[in-house]
């Protein structure tokens, strides 16, 4: 475990905490895409099936359980909780995420490390994570205004991806057999998707102004 990986994981965890805080404190999920949250829940469920087959470390197991649990809790809140549900921007969150799921599954069948059920599922989760932020970014783009906590949430998610890239570069040079090219290529795509958001995030930070995305 290197410092980039650990900071990346902590940033990922922080992003989820910020989202839970927003939902819990304001009883509102405005600006948050339910589609993206559902995709994340699917990503974690598909990838962490190995929870039952290979043990890596206590840290690894605990983090996996936290990610699965929190993503399911967020989806549950947005669908079932009376007050939270009311604030959901349903008419802005219209991205057809089923196409993403189908496309990623097809790609995972074609491009994987080994044509075996757990490997195909792993590749599927990697591809799906890379694109699962698209409905969220589309929703923000459509609404234009981004409230403070939602902005921090998306920023932390993007930062987590950027730190993972540094982690791969570090591991590539320090470990003899480290070549996770599927994860690296998908990770690069995922981070690139945030580039536009980052640009406006830094602009608003520099000008000390409210974060606004051009429509």
């Amino acid at each position: 475990m290197n410092v980039f990986r650990l900071t990346g994981d902590m940033t990922h965890l922080a992003s989820i905490l910020v989202l839970l805080l927003k939902i819990y404190a304001t009883k509102s999920c405005s600006g948050i895409s339910l589609k993206t949250q559902e995709l994340y829940a699917l990503v974690f469920l598909a990838r962490y099936l190995n929870l039952f087959t290979d043990f890596i470390s206590v840290y690894n197991t605990v983090m996996k359980l936290v990610f699965i649990g929190s993503s399911l809790a967020i989806v549950w809140c947005m669908r079932m909780h009376k007050m939270v549900k009311r604030s959901y921007d349903q008419e802005l969150d219209t991205f057809r995420h089923y196409f993403l799921i189908a496309g990623c599954f097809l790609l995972a069948l074609l491009v994987n490390e080994k044509f075996m059920f757990p490997e195909v599922l792993w590749a599927f989760s990697i591809y799906l994570e890379a694109v699962s932020t698209i409905p969220q970014l589309v929703l923000l783009q459509r609404s234009g205004n981004v409230d403070n906590l939602t902005g921090q949430y998306v920023f932390l998610l993007g930062a987590y991806r950027a730190l993972y890239i540094l982690n791969w570069i570090y591991r590539y040079f320090t470990e003899p057999h480290f070549s996770r090219w599927i994860a690296c290529v998908a990770g690069l795509v995922q981070t690139a998707l945030y580039a536009d958001f980052f640009y406006y995030y830094f602009l608003s930070w520099k000008n000390n102004a409210k974060l606004q995305l051009p429509s």
């Binding site: 190995n50 983090m63 993972y164 057999h177 996770r180």
Partner: peptide, 10 residues
Amino acid sequence: EVESPPKDEL
């Protein structure tokens, strides 16, 4: 064939 290392990332 080199066995691929366990997938230890989250």
